[in-house]
Design a protein around this nucleic acid. Structure first.
Lengths: 147, 147
DNA sequence: CAAATTTCAGGGCTACTGAAATAC
DNA sequence: CGTATTTCAGTAACCCTGAAATTT
């Protein structure tokens, strides 16, 4: 940052939140890009690893990705051989999405990559402060995700 | 959120940060939209109010908006009569951007709007926790903005 | 000459809407 | 019938790059 930021902005909690998130997002996005991926890919693969094969709609609900964006991201993951997409024999509306062995390797790679990024992002904070921050953010997120 | 989020994600500090920021950003963006504005407008007007007339490049540096996006946002603000854009007589490369009386009124409106949004965003946190959070985020942001 | 400014054209990523076709 | 799923087309906002024209 070259010059001073208006105090009207720096005094806004939401500004601190969105701006620091933008910095974090930039670092994570660059790390993913270097590994040939982006955020949606990681979120979908992580969901498949944790919950197993699922329909696209279920994947979207788990990973907070819009149904429409799930389609596009899965197209890319499928083209790279990281997931299989087959029609559900029990429900003609659905596809069953499964992660492949290559997909699991890719996912492990991305976990490593994103874990390293955490250190760069939260470098200025002690372990205690990181815990304090994640606790507060966790409460914030939980509040806005319930309904 | 309908279904569970993978623990690989919820355990990532950067995920908590970017997701809670996304929620905050959505609330702020909706508030701005209801007032006929968006984030860039507010950031530019706040900069003009705090630092006075400035060139577009200086505005961009103050508000962390790319030179290219400053052009587009100023086009909109100018069309609405919120800023004046005149060539700098002392430097043929520059425009001098000035906020108008209507622009100041618009800015005050947006300050009210964005202040109200803070309460909705940080509702689950006590005043003490809000201070803790903003302190931690401020340190994070300061670290990534220096070089 | 190099550097700064404005402008335009364009892209990437996340997030979202509306509509169609299909199946439950 | 209403609801759910997949897919496509399109939009908004923010962030960023490259290049041209102009001026310092």
């Amino acid at each position: 940052m070259d010059e001073q930021t208006p105090s009207v902005l720096t005094g806004l909690p939401s500004w601190l939140l969105t701006q620091s998130a933008a910095q974090a997002g930039r670092i994570v996005a660059e790390s993913f890009a270097a590994a040939g991926a982006r955020g949606y890919h990681f979120r979908l693969l992580a969901t498949l690893v944790e919950f197993g094969p699922a329909s696209q709609a279920a994947l979207g609900r788990h990973s907070s990705i819009d149904r429409s964006d799930v389609v596009a991201a899965l197209n890319e993951l499928e083209a790279d051989g990281y997931v299989d997409r087959i029609p559900d024999p029990d429900d003609g509306r659905r596809n069953i999405v499964t992660i492949t062995a290559a997909g699991r390797r890719h996912h492990r790679r991305l976990v490593t990559v994103v874990t390293k990024a955490q250190d760069e992002i939260f470098a200025p904070l002690s372990a205690t402060d990181r815990t304090r921050l994640t606790t507060l953010l966790g409460r914030l997120l939980a509040h806005h995700q319930q309904y």
